[in-house]
Design a protein around this nucleic acid. Structure first.
Length: 855
RNA sequence: GCCGAAGUGGCGGAAUAGGCAGACGCGCACGACUCAAAAUCGUGUUCCCUACGGGAAUGAGGGUUCGAUUCCCUCCUUCGGCACCA
């Protein structure tokens, strides 16, 4: 039959009827569905006690102005997983908001003379619109913006709660100061060897200032425990390193009285090696140690004064440089080693830091590299007290001839009744020598078990405008008092016009803002003009999402009880020791104040990697290598951008962008479209498929479903896409074999679209609803379950190895018994050829996997 | 120096209970369609050799095993955390 005349005839007759547009037009489809989903409140999450909840959280962005590809990389795979969870039947909460306080807004204020609030809210509006193009299932009714007064009212309230519970306090301290951002920083926000500001990369300097702190160190031990939470190993390790717990003992050394007013002040030291006490041949104090002056004898006063002065002048980087030669001066004073009554000299040296331990140490040169270097330079005594095992006969350690310290395991010597006790490389009380000596010290009352941390309290004062005000008031007579709750929030003024950074908060220079009355006596008082670290705002945003309009408290308890804790949290790993540590501290502090429950806010944490530029460097505006998602969405559609971001790298690792690579994902989306919409397919040899074709199709579908389900669970997005591509390729082949129209084909289509829905929500909806006429919405469908029987292979091809080398492949029934398989192997000509008539010594049959012959 | 993660084709990567290394995609090559190009479709693509066959290969070396990308030991490289922290 000739089809051509017929076709011409049809066209003529049916001309008035417009042809359905069958080409894939992502721009139109995506806009259409985004509008409908929003109008229908498809992604509104409300408490439903009958269903299991799933709180999926992704880190909220700073409204810097434009959504970049990194935001997409963080958010769209997280969205896909949240969608998957939803299809699995969970009641999913997936909120979004803005971390809206922060420095760049002030930078813009200075540059463009625009109020930070205006700049910030303009950016938020722009980014919201950009985010809508992602087609994510954000519940916008739960949006929270940390710069909204309704939000920061509660940030202030939390501060007051912490203050009232003794967890917020003010003290004068040597603090880190960024000279570019003109503000103090928390220790976590100073990074790297060169101690630079985390935000701007400028090296920080030290300043002596009175600031507000949160008592995070109270939770040091608890923060080291990660019980019951599924967090990446390296985040836990980073936090553990940061907290830096070391176990040891504190010991009190009495000083030798040598003048009228120096009647033997005791000096406390901390050591992790109390087992080496007998080897302590001198003491070293930090130049800042308060007892230095008292201990120093008149003859040494001049030298000590000079040394202190030069130490003060040096920066931390100079002082803490590891290759720096040791310096120090003798004070003229002596201490008594409490374990053997030896008189030992007391020195001052800057290698001992006032900020750690007690600012004074016992020096054991034989077993500590730093002390050894110091002792050799200044000719101080070296007494070994740990002898390496085995070395004792031929070359025992000797104080005079040692060339380096011996900080390793051995046996105690020169240590009285402890001689012979084995000292291992174990730290703390796991070391028998340390344990024995510490127990003895406690018995004798000389010292006690002690623990020291690197971790410091969180400095939260910032000398900046655009942050939540610290709600404290100072009165000459009543000191510091919190602003009464009914006066919260302390609002930021709109009428500010001087932004120049001066090193003090712009609020200080506002003519009236700081003037208020004392909450106690109602007399004149002044407000704190510093604002809070923005990490304070982000420590609790996951709670504000629960009820952003709630005004009786920071959150609605009912919402809390249903949704918390966060089930999965996704975001960048650069926050390992900042936000992710602060938020844990915050939750524990709130728990102790009776505000939250449970020990941890976040159960499962996963970090995405970074999308690098095509030249393998970090994307930056100055390099001009930034990939703009808006342009990509316009060219390919959001579904393709989403798919490519999930496909192009291991999500938790990241990779350089590849502008050609995205074509592969675009092709996949288009080929799916064609496969499901091409009218030719429906007519071509439909229904003629053999039993085998249909069985194979169904098997592939269920095998894919199994893998995709598993990979979604494990955040392995790249293999989800490749499995879907593979199945699509199979379906094209099945189409050629006439599978279209069969029950297996229909099932394949349905499962395919459901698997695709979390990845590419728009095209999946369009095909599901418009082309197959299935009930709207695909995003409210249940995830299909795997038919294990269908997924099972019935005939498998297995390799046959001879001495570990694959020589042939044979086809056997999947459930074939060992004898059957063996027979099939022996029947192979190739195998017989390789055996050369020999009988295999051993035949290993691994069911369903392979056969291995040993000759 | 201590702690952690990772090293697989030209590239991103797959192989998730020790069992066919290189799935899927990019790129490249060839072919079909086209006047031509793009798009699309098809075929091939780890390396080496005397090439319908054979050998080597998952950072390097060793070990366990019939069999190791996978487990164990030593080392190298890259990335991240800590570091004069007593």
């Amino acid at each position: 039959m000739d089809a051509k005349p017929k076709a011409i005839q049809t066209t003529k007759k049916e001309e008035p009827k417009p042809m359905k547009d069958l080409s894939y037009n992502p721009g139109a489809i995506e806009k259409k569905w985004q509008a409908k989903w929003e109008a229908d409140k498809l992604y509104r999450s409300v408490i439903d006690e009958r269903r299991k909840k799933h709180y999926a959280l992704t880190m909220l962005p700073y409204p810097s102005g434009d959504l970049h590809i990194g935001h997409w990389y963080a958010m769209t795979p997280s969205d896909a997983r949240a969608r998957f969870k939803r299809m699995q039947g969970y009641n999913v909460l997936f909120p979004m908001g803005f971390d809206a306080f922060g420095l760049p807004a002030e930078g813009a204020a200075i540059k463009n003379n625009i109020h930070p609030k205006i700049w910030t809210y303009q950016n938020i509006e722009r980014m919201r619109a950009q985010m809508r193009t992602m087609g994510a299932m954000f519940d916008w009714e739960r949006e929270a913006v940390s710069a909204d007064p309704e939000y920061y009212k509660w940030t202030e309230w939390f501060f007051i709660q912490l203050y009232k519970h003794g967890l917020a306090y003010r003290k004068k301290a040597t603090v880190d100061w960024c000279p570019k951002d003109n503000t103090t920083l928390a220790r976590e926000q100073v990074k790297g060897d060169d101690r630079v500001c985390d935000r701007c990369g400028t090296p920080v300097i030290k300043k002596e200032l009175e600031q507000w702190f949160f008592k995070a160190t109270k939770y040091a031990d608890e923060l080291l425990r990660f019980d019951g939470i599924d967090w990446p190993e390296f985040i836990k390790v980073s936090q553990t390193n940061w907290i830096g717990r070391s176990e040891g003992a504190s010991v009190i050394f009495k000083t030798v009285p040598s003048g009228d007013d120096k009647a033997g002040d005791p000096i406390e030291i901390f050591t992790t090696r109390p087992d080496t006490l007998w080897g302590a041949t001198f003491m070293v104090m930090s130049p800042e140690h308060p007892l230095v002056e008292k201990i120093t004898t008149p003859e040494h006063a001049q030298a000590v004064r000079e040394y202190k002065a030069q130490a003060e002048k040096q920066t931390d980087i100079q002082r803490e440089a590891k290759d720096k030669e040791k310096t120090g001066v003798f004070t003229g004073g002596y201490a008594i080693n409490p374990v053997n009554e030896e008189r030992i000299p007391i020195w001052v040296a800057d290698y001992v830091l006032m900020s750690y331990g007690t600012g004074a140490i016992m020096a054991v040169p034989a077993h500590d590299e730093r002390d050894f270097e110091f002792a050799r330079k200044f000719g101080l005594k070296v007494i070994p007290v740990i002898q390496p095992v085995g070395a004792s006969h031929d070359s025992p350690l000797q104080g005079d001839t040692m060339t380096e310290a011996y900080p390793h395991e051995g046996v105690m010597i020169n240590s009285g009744q402890f001689n012979g006790t084995p000292a291992t490389n174990d730290k703390g009380m796991a070391n028998p020598a340390i344990k024995a000596v510490t127990d003895w010290l406690e018995q004798k009352g000389i010292g006690k078990r002690d623990v020291n941390y690197r971790y410091r309290d969180w400095l939260i004062s910032r000398q900046r405008f655009w942050g939540a005000p610290i709600p404290m008031v100072y009165c000459e007579t009543h000191g510091w008092n919190p602003v009464p709750d009914d006066q919260l929030p302390v609002l930021l003024p709109d009428d500010i016009d001087e932004w120049k950074p001066t090193g003090e908060s712009p609020l200080k220079f506002h003519p009236t803002w700081k003037n208020t009355t004392c909450p106690v006596c109602h007399g004149p008082a002044t407000r704190e003009t510093d604002t809070m670290d923005t990490f304070m705002c982000s420590s609790w945003y996951h709670l504000r999402y629960l009820s952003p309009q709630y005004d009786k408290g920071p959150f609605d308890e009912q919402e809390y009880n249903y949704w918390m804790p966060v089930d999965t949290y996704t975001g960048g790993s650069e926050h390992a020791t900042m936000h992710l540590l602060y938020t844990r501290f915050f939750h524990k502090a709130l728990r102790d104040m009776g505000i939250t429950e449970g020990n941890e806010p976040v159960m499962q944490l996963r970090n995405q990697g970074m999308v690098l530029a095509e030249d393998n460097t970090k994307m930056s505006k100055s390099r001009g290598n930034v990939v703009a998602p808006d342009v990509l969405v316009k060219k390919y559609g959001a579904d393709t951008v989403r798919a490519y971001l999930m496909f192009f790298a291991r999500w938790q690792q990241g990779a350089p962008w590849d502008s050609q690579g995205i074509e592969g994902s675009a092709r996949w989306i288009r080929r799916v479209w064609t496969l499901f919409t091409d009218p030719q397919i429906a007519s071509d040899s439909a229904g003629a498929a053999s039993e085998e074709t249909r069985r194979n199709l169904r098997r592939k579908v269920h095998q894919t479903l199994k893998r995709v389900t598993r990979d979604f669970e494990n955040f392995e997005f790249n293999t989800i896409i490749s499995s879907l591509m593979e199945l699509m390729n199979e379906m094209y082949k099945a189409r050629e074999a006439g599978a279209v129209g069969t029950d297996e084909w229909k099932e394949a289509q349905e499962i395919y679209l459901k698997m695709m829905a979390p990845v590419a929500p728009h095209i999946a909806e369009e095909l599901w609803t418009e082309h197959f006429g299935k009930p709207y919405s695909i995003h409210q469908q249940m995830w299909s379950s795997v038919d294990e029987a269908a997924a099972k292979d019935d005939v498998i091809e297995i390799p046959v190895q001879i001495n570990g080398k694959v020589r042939d492949r044979i086809s056997v029934a999947a459930d074939a018994g060992e004898d059957e398989v063996k027979a099939a192997v022996m029947a192979s000509e190739v195998i017989q050829k390789h055996l050369e008539g020999k009988e295999p010594k051993k035949v290993i049959v691994v069911k369903g996997k392979l056969v291995s012959l040993v000759v």
